[in-house]
């Protein structure tokens, strides 16, 4: 095991797959010579050369469109969209073209491509560089949606996304780039569509994603000292969604809390709550509760942004009051 930062793990995941498969190419803005604005792709240009690791103009439609055309014709491109907020500038490519073309042609083409993007808040960047948009992608049939919470998963899930024969949107929560964690040595590939139980408790189940996972774990620690023993599940992949693991853990404790960075309406937790309501209602001992960012654009100033996103204190408080 080596200790890597999240950003080093991203680069390691890309490097592992580029070494293994000569059809993997990587393009994006500032990704080659500069190593990415979040330094998550440092060293790739030197290692794989300017043909396979390539800087693009600020042209998100052209970047995603080019990746799609290349994926249709024999490459496995990875693209970086610098901030997930910029997905809005190429949403036609993603939602109309990448997501639908396989279906509309009844399987004539496959689109093995990965769109990596820095997602989420906590960096004081304001509302156009801080959104948590994985739920946009989740709403479009034809896209797989992955969001890791640890360096090990950043590498292993990214490798799995690159090997996947279908388009994957890979959301890297930007406040996680600096965290450190153990990453298995040698080839490391995870499986898409698998949630992970990080902590097993008796009283309630807290389901979280990406940067909300460490907060859910911290909250579970505090709840423990208050006599509430919480299970924590890292969803990891929204599409495919590991409902088997999530529902199993909900049934065990009879209580479900979701911790979502998305603004309130139509966050991924709403889907999970709705599935639980349909499929394990009889196992529930109380209301299911969603802990989210309020339905506002994310403000920039530190105290405002910190308070808007689900905090450890808010998770603890919400669970405590609901469990009373």
């Amino acid at each position: 095991m080596a200790e890597l930062t999240f950003r080093e793990a991203v680069a390691a995941g890309i490097a592992q797959e580029m070494e293994r498969d000569p059809t993997v190419y990587f393009i994006g803005e500032d990704v080659a010579a500069a190593g990415g604005v979040f330094k998550a792709t440092v060293g790739l240009l030197d290692k794989f050369g300017a043909e396979r690791v390539r800087d693009t103009p600020i042209s998100e439609q052209a970047i995603v469109g080019a990746a799609m055309g290349a994926a249709m014709t024999g490459l496995r491109p990875i693209v970086e969209i610098m901030f997930s907020d910029f997905l809005a500038t190429c949403w036609d490519m993603i939602a109309n073209q990448v997501a639908k073309t396989r279906y509309m042609t009844d399987g004539q083409v496959s689109l093995p491509l990965v769109i990596r993007t820095a997602n989420g808040g906590g960096s004081r960047f304001g509302a156009q560089h801080s959104q948590s948009l994985e739920n946009w992608a989740m709403a479009v049939p034809g896209l797989k949606v992955v969001a890791p919470s640890t360096p090990a998963d950043a590498k292993g899930l990214l490798a799995a996304a690159i090997r996947d024969p279908d388009p994957v949107l890979f959301f890297e929560q930007k406040s996680l780039y600096g965290i450190k964690g153990e990453v298995p040595d040698g080839e490391h590939v995870e499986k898409l569509g698998t949630a992970r139980v990080l902590r097993e408790g008796k009283h309630c189940t807290i389901v979280a994603l990406a940067a909300m996972v460490p907060r859910a774990l911290a909250a579970a620690g505090e709840l423990d000292s208050l006599g509430i023993d919480a299970t924590v599940v890292d969803v990891r992949s929204l599409v495919p969604l590991d409902t088997r693991t999530i529902l199993r853990e909900v049934r065990k404790t009879g209580r479900l809390f979701t911790v979502e960075e998305n603004p309130r309406l139509c966050g991924w937790g709403a889907e999970i709550v709705s599935i639980a309501a349909e499929e394990c209602f009889d196992d529930l001992d109380g209301p299911m509760v969603r802990i989210t960012t309020p339905h506002v654009p994310l403000p920039a100033a530190q105290p405002m942004e910190d308070e808007a996103m689900p905090t450890v204190a808010r998770i603890v408080d919400t669970v405590k009051r609901a469990m009373r």
Partner: peptide
Amino acid sequence: MGSYAIVGAHMPIAAGAAWSAQV
């Protein structure tokens, strides 16, 4: 390789196929 119904969308996709042919 397809008929695309959003105006302009297929232009970068065609460029991508050309990129693939190039490499």
